[in-house]
Computed example of a mutant assay.
Amino acid sequence: YNLTIKQNTVAIVTDGSAVLGLGNLGPEAALPVMEGKAMLFKEFAGIDAFPICLNTQDTEEIIRTVQNIAPVFGGVNLEDISAPRCFEIEARLRETLDIPIFHDDQHGTAIVSLAALINALKIVKKSLAKVCIVINGAGAAGVAIARLLRQAGAENIIMCDSKGILSKDRTDMNPEKLEFAVAKGGTLADAIAGADVFLGVSAPGVLTRSMVQSMAENPIVFAMANPIPEIQPELIMEDAAIIATGRSDYPNQINNVLAFPGIFRGALDCKASTITTSMYLGAAYAIASLVSPEQLDKEHIIPSVFDERVAIAVADAVQLAARAEGIARD
């Protein structure tokens, strides 16, 4: 760590199987996306990140390749690998390597979503433990959001995929989906009636205005599909108390760049051996805390992606959690 590039270098590893908004494009087409990611690491956290686009979509080969190149890097950022393969790849690498492994599509999205939701709930004066949350999309991001919200204290989560509510009577579900299966099935419209929060990490246009109107009083709608959200914000301005998207041309952009640079900065600075849920929670609360009570309103529930305090605050929270858990080596 002291004498080589390991102290400040992250590998951005993809197989190009789930490029945001574009799907399975393969390694060559994924390369410019990973290069962009490397620029964000440098700009926001001063980290030297290197794009590594693998010409295989075989789970075992990806795991073996990352294990073999790991000695050079202080951490690995997995990116744009399709679900459910991404869950196994991340879990196996965490078991076998002693550097932080972070799948950004899962945990970066979950951290920033939780941060925004913490502040949105303050505005509508509802508690995380009591609200009914509907998550549409049960891929990498949806499952990670659900897991982190549970850890943060959410008790009532209904998850939907393209076939409707994840229910115990369905036979087409992977273990990650089964984790969130409920007793009663139905459509997204059934799930959302009376719900307080909609979190979409799914597909364009799947949410209708009438669905939003069927929600509880002061509904919160995070339509985060990119580049086209689950519903256009203009359609529900009068119906939703708070609206967020993944886009930069609307207020309340839920953007992973608020999380991953600071996460890795903190992990590298304390030479963390892994990344844990308490680090995610610390990061989410740190991001949320940067919106002061005076600034907090329905169009300002999350800091700007250009707010230079964010990466520092996240890095500090990550280090604090790492030391508390005894996984910091410095």
Results as ranks from 00 to 15, higher is better:
Ile192Tyr: 00
Ala193Cys: 10
Glu179Asp: 13
Phe198Asn: 05
Ala189Trp: 07
Leu178His: 07
Ala191Lys: 01
Leu178Gln: 15
Ala193Tyr: 02
Ile192Glu: 01
Gly200Lys: 09
Gly194Arg: 12
Lys184Asp: 15
Glu179Leu: 04
Gly200Leu: 10
Asp190Leu: 01
Leu199Phe: 15
Glu179Ala: 10
Ile192Val: 08
Asp190Cys: 00
Asp196Tyr: 08
Glu179Asn: 02
Arg209Phe: 11
Met211Glu: 06
Val197Lys: 14
Ala191Arg: 01
Ser202Phe: 03
Arg209Asp: 11
Leu178Pro: 05
Ser210Pro: 01
Ala191Gly: 01
Val197Phe: 14
Gly186Glu: 12
Thr187His: 07
Pro204Phe: 13
Ala195Cys: 10
Asp190Ala: 00
Thr208Met: 10
Lys184Gly: 08
Gly185Ala: 08
Lys184Leu: 08
Ala195Arg: 08
Ala189Tyr: 07
Arg209Gly: 14
Asp196Leu: 08
Thr187Phe: 06
Ala189Gly: 04
Arg209Tyr: 11
Val201Trp: 14
Val197Asn: 14
Phe180Asp: 01
Lys184Val: 14
Thr187Ile: 08
Leu207Pro: 03
Val197Gln: 14
Met211Gln: 06
Asp190Pro: 04
Gly205Pro: 13
Ala181His: 00
Ala181Cys: 03
Val182Gln: 14
Asp190Phe: 04
Gly194Glu: 03
Thr187Cys: 02
Ser210Ile: 10
Val197Gly: 15
Gly200Ile: 11
Leu199Tyr: 12
Val206Gln: 03
Phe180Thr: 01
Gly194Leu: 10
Ala193Asn: 07
Leu207Ser: 07
Gly194Thr: 06
Leu199Met: 10
Ser210Ala: 15
Val182Pro: 13
Leu188Asp: 00
Gly194Pro: 07
Leu199Glu: 08
Ala183Asp: 15
Val201Leu: 15
Val206Arg: 09
Val201Gln: 11
Gly200Arg: 09
Asp190Arg: 01
Thr187Gln: 04
Gly185Val: 10
Phe198Ala: 05
Lys184Asn: 14
Glu179Lys: 03
Gly186Asp: 13
Gly200Trp: 12
Gly194Phe: 10
Pro204Met: 11
Leu188Met: 04
Ala183Glu: 15
Ala183His: 12
Ala195Ser: 15
Ser210Asn: 13
Pro204Val: 09
Lys184His: 14
Ile192Asp: 00
Asp190Gly: 01
